[in-house]
């Protein structure tokens, strides 16, 4: 764990990976640290809007680094597996489409952090041997609800946007709805399973 001050009111904490970042962010929220924003990312947690950076630093030093994933709520996401890159990914996994669906629905993911767009969750849990490269050039428009893979991440597009992820299919699940108390369905810490629709 390495602490980098970000001006007088924020602190960037570098950690070993997404699981550790999520563990630290969850711990910090439970400890009600004084910060307006607690933003986990792939290898860091940003604490912003911090009235006393030194006190926060001292508190965080008391945290024992762990990659143990906190047990969050389990959400099932129904997927219609008809994505444009289904054949490519099946080939990369050395299987056919039915085999791909069986493997993808057999995994349990955890939302490590959100970024890129509101409610766009980076889902951790793809074994290293199933990692797939991004598209060489992103598609100008990926439809809302698309479910895709990039590297070791699985992700779902809450809104239509450009995107370079390998698309497996799409979901009707309400990934982002600002009228709800919990606008992001897959907020950090949420466990996720995909089911064939």
């Amino acid at each position: 764990m390495h602490l980098r001050p970000v001006g007088a009111t924020a602190l960037l904490v570098e950690v070993a990976g997404p699981a550790q970042a999520l563990a630290l962010a969850t711990w910090a929220r439970a400890a009600r640290v004084e910060a307006v924003e607690v933003v986990p990312a792939a290898e860091s947690v940003l604490f912003d809007g911090v009235p006393d950076v030194e006190a926060l630093g001292a508190l965080l030093r008391g945290w024992t680094p762990t990659s143990e994933t906190p047990v969050g709520e389990l959400v099932e996401v129904p997927v219609t597996y008809d994505g444009a890159d289904l054949a490519f990914v099946a080939d990369a996994w050395g299987t056919d489409v039915a085999g791909l669906v069986a493997r993808h629905t057999g995994l349990e993911f955890v939302s490590a952090f959100c970024g890129f767009a509101p409610g766009f969750a980076y889902l951790d849990g793809l074994p290293a041997e199933l990692a797939v490269p991004r598209l060489d050039s992103p598609r100008p428009r990926v439809p809302a609800g698309s479910v895709g893979l990039a590297g070791r991440w699985c992700g779902t597009y809450p809104t239509a946007s450009p995107g370079g992820w390998r698309l497996l299919g799409r979901t009707d699940a309400p990934l982002w709805d600002p009228s709800r108390d919990r606008p992001a369905l897959l907020a950090p810490g949420t466990r996720v399973r995909f089911v064939a629709a």
């Binding site: 001006g7 924020a10 924003e37 990312a41 290898e43 860091s44 947690v45 912003d48």
Partner: peptide
């Protein structure tokens, strides 16, 4: 790797020419 960003951050993309992040900046 992508990380949390604050208001007023002077980010330097590969072009080397800076951008000052304002209110609608991406959070990461």
């Amino acid at each position: 790797v992508s990380e949390g960003m604050v208001l007023g951050a002077v980010q330097v993309p590969p072009s080397g020419v800076p951008v000052v992040f304002l209110a609608d900046h991406p959070p990461t």
